[in-house]
């Protein structure tokens, strides 16, 4: 379990993380979402003791990371930027980390096999593709068989097969009762992987809920109606106090009513319907909706 209490990090006048409080629970995959510059990486660096919080605290199972006697056995971390010397082989990189904890060479070989790097384990890491680098980073994180994993953008640079592999791996690790905390800016990916979401923007928590609730709240379902008498139906529904949008003639997008109710109202008004369907907002839409005001670097349209 990871607990952040009023976690704040300032770099000079700039506040990267602004009073974050959250709990990451074991047994599920928790997604950590936010646009670039939202403070995700800084928060993760504070979890593993690389950066010290300006104020507040973050603990893993009740202990600050720097006070853990054997941190690799408690927390495995993959940090966004590469954390590997390009002149060293994958095996030697992992061996050097393993030796600090007295972890055996057999375990080093085991994690190399687990991430599928056996063919290149003795090659210099500088020759690795981004995807292979990520796999090596994940191997480092798994080295001590930790109960908690902190992964910053783990699917970055992975091909579809690699993305599927890590999704399956994370789900399996979570089902074993481990705490899995994964950051991403790929909303669609999180929809498939994460059970719970913590959404941040400009260093603040914007949402902390289950993935399903997040989608429902941030961008509610919309009912799409196609009808030759769209104007009449619109008139009939206006009284219900719903939001009605229209992209094209003859099509209504209605938020706030179910298809059942709309169908009944249409029948009562004698309106012919050609289409009546529910459109669920994607996580991408929900995320855009929520973080619209907190995007750090916004493109000017």
């Amino acid at each position: 379990m990871i607990e952040a209490i009023d976690l704040t990090k300032r770099y000079g006048a700039k506040t990267a993380v602004d009073g974050l409080s959250f709990t990451v629970r074991p047994g599920v995959v928790t997604g950590f979402l936010g646009p670039n510059g939202a403070g995700k990486s800084t928060t993760m660096r504070m979890i593993v003791g690389l950066d010290a919080p300006t104020t507040g605290a973050v603990t893993v199972d009740g202990t600050r990371y720097r006070e853990l006697p054997a941190p690799l056995h408690r927390v495995g971390a993959l940090l966004e930027a590469r954390s590997i010397h390009p002149g060293r082989s994958a095996f030697n990189h992992l061996l050097a980390l393993a030796q600090t904890h007295g972890i055996t060479r057999a375990r080093v070989d085991e994690v190399i096999e687990l991430v599928g790097l056996q063919p290149v384990a003795r090659k210099r890491a500088g020759t690795f593709s981004l995807g292979m680098g990520q796999r090596l980073g994940i191997a480092s994180a798994l080295l001590g068989d930790p109960d908690t994993l902190v992964l910053d953008e783990p699917v970055n640079g992975l091909d579809p097969e690699g993305i599927h592999w890590i999704r399956t791996l994370l789900r399996r690790l979570a089902s074993e009762g481990r705490t899995i905390f994964v950051s991403s800016h790929l909303m669609s990916e999180m929809a498939l992987t994460a059970d719970h979401l913590i959404v941040v923007g400009r260093g603040r928590v914007l949402a902390d809920c289950s993935t399903a609730d997040f989608i429902a709240q941030a961008a509610p379902a919309v009912v799409r109606v196609r009808s030759p008498h769209a104007a009449r139906l619109s008139e009939a529904l206006r009284a219900e106090g719903v939001t009605i949008g229209s992209d094209e003639p003859g099509v209504l997008e209605i938020a706030g009513l179910t298809t059942d109710v709309i169908g009944e109202r249409a029948a009562a008004a004698g309106v012919t319907l050609h289409e009546l369907s529910t459109r669920h907002a994607s996580l991408e839409d929900a995320f855009m909706e929520l973080t619209r005001d907190s995007v750090e670097y916004e493109a000017v349209a």
Binding site: L72, L79, S83, L97, H101
Partner: peptide, 18 residues
């Protein structure tokens, strides 16, 4: 400095946070 330049210092200090 090689560890700082390549980022491997992060792996090192994550393993030995003291």
């Amino acid at each position: 400095t090689g560890e700082y330049a390549t980022g491997s210092i992060r792996s090192t200090f994550a393993a030995v946070p003291r």
